[in-house]
């Protein structure tokens, strides 16, 4: 069985009709990140995206899924064949996760969300169904619309369906915790540690892979500090910061308040919001032109700005 690029799907056609070509519009999923990008303009029509897993081909490591499907449902289906995706599990929908573009806090083990979206089908501001990308992991066939739409917060088109890359769930995963370890020494000692979460006192590390490798990594980890097994921590809450990984070594210079940092990645989940510098003028111009090209009347998700946390 092979995935085809533009199979007709009446469900997606119905969604295109619902989007239409006029009036301001926003697509809501489960509203788990409804505040991202700023408040929605008043009197905006709100619709839902279509749901359902269209096609799952475990041996190709791809799944075609409609945007309104919950990530939990998707991952339950994939788990039956020993796979998962890079999408964050926090109660939201596939379309919401792709539109927001933020990776899971277990990114080092699960992969980068933005590299996982192989194909995207979306309804344009004119109400037309558009396809970008393709069903293969390797693909340089034209301009990369999946990368553009991922993280664009529904401001360029309404995501209807995506093809995601799936990955095998590791044979073993194990979380360990320490209060005396230097979190920045871990990456130097281990080849591919999973997520390393640090709140200034406690370091929690996930190890993954073959059982024998994880056991050996535990020994390496214990050369860095006293580590004990612990439960998998839940997704950290708070304002999301994005900083170069090296900036985490000087947390005092960042005004985060209480925090949980993703060491080696550069994401901080913090009490206070990050104040980000404005885009440089050249990049801002391209952003403005991009929005004008894809949504000239500004009808898609008005009030929201992609990349504002």
């Amino acid at each position: 069985m092979t995935a085809t690029l533009r199979n007709a799907d009446p469900v997606l056609d119905e969604f295109a009709v619902a989007v239409g070509a006029e009036g301001t519009l926003s697509v809501a999923g489960n509203r788990t990140r409804w505040d991202v990008g700023g408040p929605l303009a008043p009197d905006t029509r709100i619709i839902s995206a279509p749901t359902g897993i269209v096609e799952y081909i475990p041996e190709e490591m791809i799944v075609t899924v409609r945007a309104g499907t919950s990530v939990d449902e998707l991952h339950r289906t994939l788990a039956e064949r020993g796979q998962w995706t890079a999408l964050p599990e926090r109660g939201g929908t596939v379309g919401g996760a792709v539109a927001v573009g933020q990776s899971d806090y277990r990114r080092p083990a699960r992969g980068d969300l933005r590299s996982a979206v192989l194909q995207v089908r979306y309804v344009s501001a004119e109400g037309t169904l558009v396809t970008g990308g393709g069903p293969t992991v390797k693909n340089v066939s034209g301009f990369d619309l999946p990368r553009l739409i991922t993280g664009s917060l529904g401001t360029l088109g309404c995501i209807a369906e995506v093809i995601l890359r799936t990955n095998p769930i590791p044979a073993t995963t194990r979380w360990l915790s320490s209060t005396d370890a230097d979190p920045f020494a871990i990456h130097a000692r281990l080849l591919r540690p999973g997520p390393v979460l640090w709140d200034g006192t406690t370091t929690q590390v996930m190890l993954f892979g073959h059982d024998i490798d994880v056991t050996a990594d535990v020994d390496r980890l214990r050369s860095v500090g006293r580590f004990d097994d612990c439960d998998e921590p839940s997704a950290p809450a708070g304002h999301r910061w994005s900083v170069p990984p090296a900036a985490l070594t000087n947390m005092a210079a960042l005004d985060t308040g209480a925090f949980v940092a993703e060491v080696g990645v550069g994401i901080i989940h913090a009490e206070r919001a990050q104040i980000r510098p404005p885009l440089d003028p050249g990049a801002r111009l391209i952003h403005e032109r991009m929005k004008a090209e894809f949504d000239p009347t500004g009808r898609l998700n008005p009030g929201r700005i992609a990349g504002v946390r």
Binding site: G101, Q102, S103, R107, R114, V140, F143, D144, R147, L148, T150, G151, S152, L156, R240, S242, V243, P244, P245, A246, A247, V265, G266, I267, R276, L279, A283, I286, H287, M290, A306, G307, V308
Partner: peptide
Amino acid sequence: LDPEPDGYDLRGVFVG
């Protein structure tokens, strides 16, 4: 160098 730069993923579309 930070993992989630602001705005559209212009870096991602430039590659390729």
